[in-house]
């Protein structure tokens, strides 16, 4: 076999890269449009009674909160907390009275069969909507079996979102890994 034949796969890789680049550029407007539509639908679902949202700047000390969307009836707060296998991104809807109206996991890379159940485990997620001032795993929230760190991360996110809306002085110590 000729020596130059070993460069043929490199040429094929370059062609594939060019094709991927063209696809990425072509899909960019669609991607942006669908992302915004999805976000708006999620925000509307999380905070019933609100249809228009505006991003409100957050300058507080709680490193958990990354964005806050103001609706007519409250806020949807985007939080990032450290789980067992990476960061967990959560959207939490809280009405002006401080009641959690909805929670949705946006990103999570926890272990299959354990922490990953936090996305879909209805009994666990329902507890996050309970009307307590502060949720605490082991007291008023039952952790997912085998996923205590993940459960605490979600509870921490909900507490931070509630504190943001009610103005409560929540301990920032809760942002440490594992809670």
């Amino acid at each position: 076999m000729k020596k130059w034949a070993f460069f043929l796969p490199a040429a094929a890789t370059l062609l594939l890269a060019a094709a991927l680049y063209a696809s990425a550029v072509a899909l960019l407007p669609v991607s942006e449009q669908n992302r915004l539509a999805d976000l708006n639908e999620t925000l509307t679902t999380l905070l019933p009674g609100s249809s228009q949202f505006s991003v409100e700047p957050y300058s507080g000390e709680d490193g958990t909160i990354v964005a806050a969307y103001r609706g007519e009836t409250g806020y949807v707060v985007e939080t990032v907390t450290a789980g067992y296998a990476g960061d967990i991104t959560l959207l939490v809807g809280v009405d002006d009275g401080g009641t959690v109206t909805g929670v949705v996991v946006r990103d999570l890379q926890e272990t299959f069969g354990l922490g990953r159940r936090a996305m879909v485990d209805v009994p666990f997620l329902t507890q996050l909507l309970f009307d307590y001032d502060t949720l605490t795993v082991g007291e008023n929230v039952d952790a997912l079996t085998g996923a205590t760190v993940t459960s605490k991360a979600l509870v921490r996110a909900v507490n931070a979102a509630k504190a943001f809306v009610t103005g409560a002085d929540i301990s920032s110590g809760a942002t440490t890994w594992g809670g």
Partner: peptide, 9 residues
């Protein structure tokens, strides 16, 4: 890329 564009969630 496709999932990012058509299934952003």
């Amino acid at each position: 890329l496709l999932l990012d564009a058509f299934a952003p969630a």
